[in-house]
């Protein structure tokens, strides 16, 4: 039981990170119908910017850990968002209205470019982040096994829940969110109503990248190391999460992220760590066989 609880906590933490990345996939898919294969690398850039920002702050002598984390959070969101914006502007917008595969190919190119770009600038070796937050809370103890939620996990879960609530409100309640949903449903009509479609799409990339940046920071805090390749697997899993939840669905991305995190944690905990990725992807295959639109995806037929 204690062991189970511990895996649950670990799984939720992982799931929070995947969910944050998955939102970017699902929103971009919703609005322009393409898989942004470079999104995982935008997440990786977010992780690097966090590490650089932490280093800068320690040089500047910011000693307070909560303050440092808040500053890094803001910095990495802003800079990573700029990358997200640039990716769309450079790699996708010029291809809008081109054949369907064109932006996908461009996305893969962008992904490779970003990896090499970071590798050149930062080197290929893993970058460590000195442990910032230590300690945790002992929840229960039994059978010689202590269930612990450490402070990093608490921060990750709290920040993620806050962001997801804020984000859901943004999409469902604000004019920007309505414009995004309008573009999703009928871009031509949105333009006819005075919505600047290009700007709305840009903002979607900016928002997705900002959330991926938070995930990058969380990843760096949680694992303590990053390299230029982390975007690949994390991106693939977040993408799996988005598909599992129903691509295009915002709650679906969150749910999918949590499920993938849990599957990974429980599989590693009870079976074998080596096959944890296989487990996540197998569940995806099963879901797609029995429910092709994902868990919360809407069926394609629609009365209009």
């Amino acid at each position: 039981m204690e062991y189970f609880l511990q895996q649950l906590i670990n799984g939720l933490t992982l799931g929070a990170i995947y969910g944050l990345i998955a939102i970017g996939y699902t929103m971009v898919y919703g609005i322009i119908g393409m898989i942004n294969f470079a999104h995982g690398d935008v997440f990786m850039i977010g992780a690097f910017i966090s590490i650089i920002a932490f280093a800068l702050l320690s040089i500047l002598g910011v000693a307070s850990v909560p303050l440092a984390i808040l500053l890094v959070l803001a910095t990495t969101m802003v800079f990573t968002a700029a990358y997200g914006w640039a990716v769309e502007r450079i790699a996708y917008r010029p291809l809008r209205g081109s054949f369907r595969l064109a932006p996908l190919i461009s996305a893969i190119g962008m992904s490779i470019f970003l990896q090499n770009y970071v590798q050149l600038l930062q080197g290929a070796r893993i970058k460590p982040l000195p442990p910032m937050i230590t300690g945790g809370i002992l929840l229960t103890e039994g059978d010689g096994f202590a269930v612990q939620i450490n402070y990093t996990q608490m921060i990750i879960i709290a920040v993620t829940v806050t962001l997801m609530v804020a984000f859901t409100l943004l999409i469902t309640r604000t004019a920007l969110g309505r414009a995004q949903r309008a573009c999703e449903q009928d871009r031509g009509m949105a333009a006819l109503l005075g919505i600047n479609v290009d700007r709305t799409i840009s903002l979607t990339f900016v928002m997705g990248a900002a959330l991926a940046a938070v995930a990058g920071l969380m990843f760096a805090l949680y694992y303590g190391v990053v390299d230029f390749f982390i975007g690949f697997l994390a991106g693939l899993k977040a993408f799996t999460a988005a598909v599992l939840g129903g691509i295009g669905s915002l709650p679906g991305a969150m749910l999918g992220g949590i499920l993938i995190g849990l599957i990974e944690a429980f599989w590693s905990g009870y079976f074998s760590v080596e096959y944890k990725d296989v487990a996540a992807f197998s569940v995806l295959v099963l879901v797609l066989i029995f429910r092709p639109t994902g868990l919360l995806g809407r069926p394609e037929v629609e009365k209009v």
């Binding site: 004019a175 309505r178 414009a179 949903r181 309008a182 449903q185 009928d186 031509g188 009509m189 949105a190 006819l192 109503l193 005075g194 919505i195 809407r298 629609e302 009365k303 209009v304």
Partner: peptide, 22 residues
């Protein structure tokens, strides 16, 4: 326009709100 092109997955109210974008 032709075919009405209302936003089917939004409420009536939201459609009207989007109408007032400008």
């Amino acid at each position: 326009p032709e075919g009405r092109r209302i936003f089917p997955r939004m409420t009536v109210m939201e459609n009207l709100q989007i109408g007032s974008t400008t």
